Simulated assay, not measured.
Amino acid sequence: MKVVAFERNLQGTGASRRLRNSGKTPGIVYGAADQPQLIELDHNALWHALKKEAFHSSILDLEVAGKSQQVLLRDVQYHPFRQLVLHVDFQRVDAKKKLHTKVPVHFMNQETNPAVKLGGAVISHVVTEVEVECLPGDLPEFVELDLSKIEAGQSLHAKDITLPKGVSLAARVEAENPVVAAAAVPAAAVSSEAAEGEAGETPAA
């Protein structure tokens, strides 16, 4: 995904305010042993890009002054109540060095799960993104978790996620192995089944 930005020479609260008033968003690019670079981006184009899941988890080609560099989106600051992006941070990536970043989890086959279709179970998505480690060229836009066989009362953890070749869970996530999805039968459904069972019992003579 390509992002076009422009060099920014002025900094400070007043300069940033004037920049935003002109439809631009201030930002910064840092990392990879190079000096931080102040940039500005077209606000509307950035706003629409931020709505795309891949923009948050993919390697981006950032073009500044005709030169392209590979970056990851690292931080976005939003206005508390206006539809306004106040500032963005991008981090340069080195193609030869592994990076740590979060990618979205896509939940697959929930609709065909027997516990959901027949047993009234409800699957909750406890975690919607997971931190992984890989080379920039191996970074996936998302990872998948298969929910087709989870049963009521069961949970699936980070280690149950299908990871592409060259991608591993970050060491902390590997050690903690947090719950990513859990299946439960709502209390109302359980009490309803219990009531039906009692109604079906015949009193002893």
Rank of each mutant, 00 (worst) to 15 (best):
2 K>C: 15
3 V>E: 03
4 V>Q: 14
5 A>P: 01
6 F>T: 08
8 R>M: 12
10 L>E: 14
12 G>F: 07
14 G>H: 13
17 R>C: 09
18 R>C: 12
19 L>Q: 09
19 L>D: 05
21 N>G: 08
24 K>E: 06
26 P>E: 09
27 G>I: 00
28 I>L: 07
29 V>G: 01
30 Y>G: 04
31 G>P: 04
37 Q>Y: 10
37 Q>T: 13
38 L>D: 03
38 L>T: 03
41 L>G: 00
45 A>F: 02
46 L>H: 07
46 L>T: 02
47 W>R: 02
47 W>Y: 11
49 A>H: 01
50 L>W: 03
51 K>F: 07
52 K>V: 15
55 F>A: 01
55 F>R: 01
56 H>F: 10
56 H>M: 07
57 S>A: 14
58 S>K: 03
59 I>H: 04
60 L>M: 03
61 D>G: 05
62 L>M: 06
65 A>W: 04
66 G>E: 08
68 S>F: 13
69 Q>V: 09
72 L>S: 11
73 L>R: 00
74 R>W: 00
77 Q>T: 14
77 Q>Y: 13
79 H>N: 13
81 F>N: 07
81 F>A: 09
81 F>L: 07
84 L>P: 09
84 L>S: 07
85 V>M: 02
88 V>G: 00
90 F>N: 04
90 F>G: 00
91 Q>S: 06
91 Q>K: 03
95 A>D: 04
95 A>T: 11
97 K>L: 15
100 H>V: 11
100 H>A: 09
102 K>R: 11
104 P>Y: 13
105 V>M: 06
106 H>R: 14
110 Q>C: 00
111 E>C: 03
112 T>F: 15
112 T>G: 12
114 P>L: 05
114 P>M: 08
115 A>C: 08
115 A>E: 01
119 G>Q: 04
121 A>V: 02
122 V>K: 03
122 V>N: 06
123 I>Q: 00
123 I>E: 00
123 I>L: 00
124 S>T: 08
125 H>Y: 04
127 V>S: 10
129 E>N: 12
130 V>S: 07
130 V>F: 13
132 V>I: 10
132 V>F: 05
133 E>K: 15
134 C>G: 01
135 L>E: 00
136 P>C: 06
140 P>N: 00
141 E>P: 06
143 V>N: 08
144 E>H: 07
145 L>N: 04
147 L>G: 01
148 S>Y: 14
148 S>N: 08
148 S>W: 12
148 S>V: 11
149 K>Y: 10
151 E>Q: 14
154 Q>R: 07
155 S>C: 13
156 L>M: 12
156 L>G: 02
159 K>I: 15
162 T>G: 11
165 K>D: 14
166 G>S: 04
166 G>A: 05
169 L>Y: 12
173 V>Q: 02
174 E>D: 10
179 V>K: 01
179 V>S: 05
182 A>E: 08
186 P>W: 02
187 A>C: 09
187 A>V: 09
188 A>G: 15
188 A>V: 06
189 A>K: 15
191 S>D: 12
191 S>Y: 10
192 S>P: 05
194 A>G: 12
196 E>Y: 14
199 A>M: 08
201 E>P: 10
203 P>I: 14
204 A>D: 15
